[in-house]
Amino acid sequence: MGFLLAIIAAIFFPGIILRVKSTASGRKGPGILQPWKNIRVLLRKGSVISTTTSYISRIAPVIYLSTILCALLLLPFPGVPPIIAFEGDFVLFAYMLALGKFLFMLGAIDSGNSFGGMGANRKSLFSMLAEPAFFILFGSMALLTGYTSMQQIVESIQLVGYNSFIIGALAAYVLIQIAIVETSRLPVDDPNTRNATTMVDGVMILDFSGFDLALIQIGTLLRLAMYGVLVANFLIPAGWPVLTRIALFIGVQIAFASMIGLIESFRARKKLSKNPQFIISLNVLALVAFVLVLLINFKMIGK
């Protein structure tokens, strides 16, 4: 179910962001499916392959996309178990994505120009800093619910008590920020800038073209939607009927997309050297969630 929802979300999500951005800037804007139409064009195009590149560039987009698809298989949705779920699956989830990132970065360096190295170095630094937030968050969830499987965590988080909504909201917020860092959107990275020296993801794809570029873009869209599903899972009470939850899910996705769209319309990109600070503050938020869990579990007064 999580897999299907993520795919559906991925189809409409980027279009909504675009729409919100164009409305905010007073334009009419393209159709909701425009990003996928762009990808369709790319899929039909031929490729230009640099003489500098090696087999790394050929396999990098393939592996990038397959790691994301594989991570989607682990995606939870209360009531309908994912295809693969086990104790500690969020570790596999995070490390699977790391494999994709690793190959993507190598593919960027493979092009042999300075841009690839530029993007890869930022990407590796930022994701290295953002990773602890994800693990602390799920650590606190494990402490709260007593489970370490994502499916069981989202199923039982509301059972803990009324307070769990605060934690759910906080977790959702941290996940949104992680999503922004990982998919390189504002304020960490500006996907629309034309200045290569200030980009993260944008400079890494410079030497990919045609089918390969399409694979990477599909991957990135899926990735954003995947975080969207995770966020929704923390916000929607698990006990409600499935149809209501799906309706709510759509609502959450639209809200998430419009939020990203609004941020991108009204905010400027951070200075690159300020980004680490911003990402470390995410970890602090995750720590706040941890302390909250401690308070709720009454472990504060000895055990």
Partner: peptide, 15 residues
């Protein structure tokens, strides 16, 4: 897919 597409070989884009 790539077998059915035109593949051009070029140098890396150097700005």
């Amino acid at each position: 897919v790539l077998n059915h597409r035109k593949i051009a070989i070029g140098t890396t884009w150097g700005c």
